[in-house]
Amino acid sequence: MELRNIEMAARGGGEDCKKEDKLEFRVLHVPLPSEREASIALGSLAPDREPRKGGITKELSALGNVLSVRWTADEARILRVSVGSFLDNLALVLETMEQFGPSVPL
């Protein structure tokens, strides 16, 4: 849940590599307290598309309690903006879950 760890994971754990002229920031793995929280985070963060028309793709998935994101981008600049705003949004989701959770059981 600690965002500093996530940011470090984003820098250290992800891989930047050049592939078919595309920058690929392979994966950011975010462990959440439970599967339910990972699923809520996915549900909150997945619906909005990237603002620019081309130049970047972002795929989110959740497996167990881990939320994963995979980016591909034409330019580092566009990638940086997308990763930055993703982390801001993720922090807001975590804060909301902390203050207005836990999730109501079924």
Partner: peptide, 20 residues
């Protein structure tokens, strides 16, 4: 505006899911 709309929608989605 895109960014402010996203911010607010994210909180709405999160509480809607938390509270079912």
């Amino acid at each position: 505006m895109g960014a402010p709309l996203v911010t607010v929608a994210i909180v709405a989605r999160t509480v809607a899911q938390l509270w079912r």
